[in-house]
């Protein structure tokens, strides 16, 4: 099937240029830097310790060699199933969170532009919820994960074709304080 090949290509692409995208495309820059420390209800606690350690031996959350630097889970059209190829990514974050007891995350769901804005907002949240479910099964407590959505409002790719849409159907993991 043509579709499957495309998704694979997208997944590889996404994995390969996730950090590059952050620099090029301001719409996703908040993945790492644009979240003001004041917004999260639990922002302060988790920032202090990791940053002091970061300077010594690098922050695994941002180290491009660490699986934890991969933050995006991509979805098929009209689907909120977490595909097998992203299990490793979700497992890595689950392990990190079970080690770092004070870490908290927000999982932000996103959709492609097709369909109604408000319904897409709910669909994005369901995608985020699907990732959360995997993490809670792996032992992360429910209260440490908030699931929200940008719906179709913050596309990473601006095109109006499947290659853009595939990049926009995703859930991003963001740590509190980032």
């Amino acid at each position: 099937m043509k579709k499957a090949a495309l998704y694979l290509a997208v997944a590889v692409l996404a994995g390969a240029c996730a950090s590059k995208e952050v620099q090029q495309e301001p719409a996703v820059a908040d993945r790492s830097s644009a979240v003001p420390p004041t917004t999260g209800s639990t922002g302060a606690s988790s920032t202090t310790r990791p940053t002091t350690m970061d300077t010594m031996r690098g922050n695994p959350l941002t180290d491009p060699n660490s699986p934890l630097s991969k933050r995006s889970v991509y979805f098929d059209f009209d689907s909120n199933a977490v595909k097998d190829e992203y299990r490793g990514l979700v497992q890595a974050h689950s392990r990190y969170m079970t080690d770092k007891r004070d870490s908290r995350i927000r999982i932000e769901g996103n959709c492609d532009e097709r369909g109604s804005r408000e319904y897409n907002l709910a669909l994005g949240q369901r995608r985020a919820e699907a990732v959360k479910k995997v993490m809670t099964v792996l032992g992360v407590s429910d209260g440490r994960i908030e699931t929200t959505s940008y719906g179709e409002e913050k596309p990473v790719a601006m095109g109006h074709d499947e290659s853009s849409w595939a990049q926009n159907r995703r859930a991003d993991i963001k740590y509190s304080g980032e």
Binding site: D30, V35, T39, R106, E108, L121, E146, T148, S149, Y150, G151, E153
Partner: peptide, 9 residues
């Protein structure tokens, strides 16, 4: 209206 000023709706 829905605002995303707090990074969520």
């Amino acid at each position: 209206y829905v605002s995303f000023d707090q990074k969520k709706p």
